[in-house]
Amino acid sequence: MPVFIINRLLQAIGVILVMSVLVFVGLYLIGDPTSMLVSPEATEIERQALRKALGLDQSIWIQYLTFLGNAAHGDFGRSFLTGQPALQLIVERMPATVELVVVAMTFALVVGVPLGILAGLRPKAPSSKAIMTGSILGFSLPNFWIGLMLIMLFAVYLGVLPASARGETVNIGGVALSIFTLDGWQHLALPALTLGMAKAALIIRVTRAATREVLPMDYIKFARAKGLRPSRILKVHLLKNILIPIVTVAGLEFGQAIAFAVVTESVFSWPGMGKLLIDSIITLDRPVVVAYLIMMVFFLVILNLVIDILYIAIDPSAGEKVRD
């Protein structure tokens, strides 16, 4: 196990190195960040001074090596735009994104698992067919389109929910959270629904497939033959066995959702880190983009590790597969 964890971490470091080079060179090629920052009235001398202050007068490789040196000490540079440490900017925005994704994923699981089991138990029933057709809609329509339609319906036509921004927050242990206020939930509803809908559709499909795979198994037949109540069969035998694929998919989707929040956040002006990434890419705020991606890689690696460990916890025989 430890070898496997170390292996993963080494891999992550490799990915980060490759990626940071690509992003560095890439953003360098797009254009000069100072052209976005500096007032058009500034003279060439003032521009040069800014380039020097931001270290942009150096060659790209020197800039990169300086970055690596500082990063080794945990310093990911300062945002060109705001002058604040890039890492701090991202961490400040993180609670909003994580909150959104957690609520969306919870919604997806609460809706998806029961519907999926239902569709799996009686695949021929019209209700099941309706669920499956609905789920096609859910995961195939583009995220942003669903968001726009929800805004039109709930915010503009019906006027029952706010269309953008985050609600009132409460400070808990230094982290601003909005899930403890009514206003917060009202603001959270539409973006979480947008993000959660596609995920719910996916969970339905995974749950259905898993249910259908488990149903013909001997232990279910055996339990039925023993005359156990259907609810008990469902709870103990079925749920336990379909849990692995659901946990795997939900875990992977959690990572995807954190990234996908980019779209939802920009539709709903949600002040999360995805929005920060888009804005930073547009203004060529390289330190923020690089720091964001590095955080993302670390997060995904840790997430995958956690999924694998959960996997083994649920089904020890899966351990072999994981290491493959």
Binding site: Q256, I258, A259, F260, I281, V289, M296
Partner: peptide, 8 residues
């Protein structure tokens, strides 16, 4: 995540 790679 695909969206992130494509975006970058």
């Amino acid at each position: 995540p695909a969206i992130l790679v494509a975006l970058i």
